[in-house]
Design a protein around this nucleic acid. Structure first.
Lengths: 207, 207
DNA sequence: GAGTATACTGAACGGGCGTTCTGCTGTCAA
DNA sequence: TTGACAGCAGAACGCCCGTTCAGTATACTC
């Protein structure tokens, strides 16, 4: 993901920083001034490469300050902010990573979403994590990953349905443990692959 | 707050919509095209008025697409998104509304933060609302207001310290009720004014 | 009736800014 | 050693775009 040539990475970082801190994208000359590139063409070359590689977007050509960040950029590196798309309910079907948001975005400070990699948000249905302080209707912010460690709270796909549970590997089977006084854990055998969608890294609730 | 002349409100709404949906501010001519204003000066007049009234900002003059929204704009109207500044800990001193963010921002879909008016976020210290699923370290999103209704979860100033409690008016006194099995409520007499800072409208937790 | 705010048209100026072209210097793999 | 890629310089073109100046029209207040 982050296999950019060093100078291109600097250019991308510079553009991202300016967009985040100033609220409006820089011009080629502004980028050049910051990085010591006197020719606009020098910057244009880098931008062209970054667009081709999917790190930047240029929706309208020939337009002043027309550079935009893509999801690839906002969910990478040490960006101070992060756009987390809300992909749907955690009890309804398979969540799919998409560029465009379905139900809006959670825009959070980078330090509030631990770890790297793409993230998404889901709405929790049911009370299975009530003892963790996660209620029906809460949103969970999930970092996409296929594996998990014992004790992690994960979003897993069981019978084509996504659920939020604690993850425990017990020998050959996996235990998906709810945080509810009366609900029983779900066991997934070695044959049925437990499709881990990601790890819950944050929770959001609306009153 | 929203006492703008109708046409100025349309211009502001148009600019805000374009910034939110396209990610980059519009030019005067783009605004004019959308609203049927053929002269850039017509738009410039509206922008000038909106800047003077504090609804827009123009940090650099003479710069293409240099318009920015102010906190006044983002926390008003039917904006689809909302920037909520994080102002500090809920147990540490008086929260103050400021233009610039202290600890970053929660950028949330408008429909996720009920109600109107300016909002801010605070970090909760202690376990006093544990039974509500609000843990130590959680963030609460607070809509600024001076009054509250029975049962509201509010941020109140008691002895110059901000706390999160449920609000109940009981005759002449006010009861600030924690959601904790062993913690006692705080009573505020009629003489001591309970300084309500706002109402908790959302919660955010980071793992 | 004078003054002020709103809401524009039309035109022109001048710098901002993306684009394009040519050409240069490296490095690295084939 | 030929080629591809990264990373520039320098210059020129031409539209984009904020700004400014000069008016016009309506509505409202004093």
């Amino acid at each position: 993901m982050d296999d950019l040539p060093p100078r291109q990475a600097e250019v991308l970082e510079c553009i991202r920083r300016i967009i985040v801190t100033r609220g409006i994208p820089p011009t080629y000359r502004e980028v050049g001034d910051e990085l010591g590139i006197s020719s606009t063409n020098g910057v244009a070359d880098h931008v062209k490469a970054l667009v081709e590689k999917g790190y930047l977007r240029k929706p309208m050509r020939g337009v002043a300050r027309g550079l935009q960040l893509t999801a690839k950029t906002t969910s990478m590196g040490d960006s101070p902010t992060l756009d987390v798309p809300i992909l749907g309910n955690v009890a309804a079907g398979v969540p799919i990573m998409a560029d465009e948001n379905l139900d809006g975005c959670l825009h959070l400070g980078r330090d509030m979403v631990p770890g790297k990699g793409p993230s998404f948000a889901l709405r929790v249905r049911g009370e299975s994590m009530i003892e963790e302080g996660i209620h029906d209707g809460d949103y969970v912010i999930v970092r996409q990953q296929q594996t998990a460690r014992n004790g992690d709270m994960v979003v897993a796909l069981v019978d084509d349905e996504a659920t939020v549970k604690f993850f425990f590997k017990e020998g050959k089977r996996i235990r998906l443990q709810p945080a509810h006084p009366t609900m029983a854990p779900i066991f997934v055998g070695a044959d049925q692959r437990a499709a881990i969608q990601g790890k819950v890294v944050a929770v959001f609730r609306k009153y």
